[in-house]
């Protein structure tokens, strides 16, 4: 992923990716974040209770909680609407 994303778009990517348990390293790799920024975003989502950290077979994993659903649903609705009823461009 290249380009300038908003923090909400990054949160959406992290929370969507973490529907299945993921390591910190795989999250920052998948979401194209550096360690510092990744830690800030993941820390924020953990603090709010949208991500839960747990241990499994010696691995430190993160998983999206049910509390994140209102955010994910609202994001889905708003972004699909951009191309559903929004202005279109064609040559």
């Amino acid at each position: 992923m290249k380009g300038k994303r908003t923090q909400y778009e990054i949160y959406w990517e992290i929370l969507t990716y973490c529907r299945n348990p993921r390591t910190f390293t795989s999250i920052i790799h998948r979401c194209s974040l550096n360690s510092k920024i990744g830690q800030e975003h993941i820390g924020f989502l953990e603090d709010k209770g949208y991500l839960r950290r747990f241990e499994d077979e010696g691995q430190n994993l993160l998983r999206t909680t049910d509390d994140a659903m209102p955010f994910l649903d609202a994001f889905r609705e708003m972004y699909l609407e951009l191309f559903d009823r929004g202005p279109d461009f064609k040559l």
Partner: peptide
């Protein structure tokens, strides 16, 4: 689909 929308918006913002 939303992932592509996010990428497209990020691409436009940057470029």
């Amino acid at each position: 689909i939303i992932g592509i929308i996010v990428q497209s918006l990020a691409f436009y913002r940057e470029n």
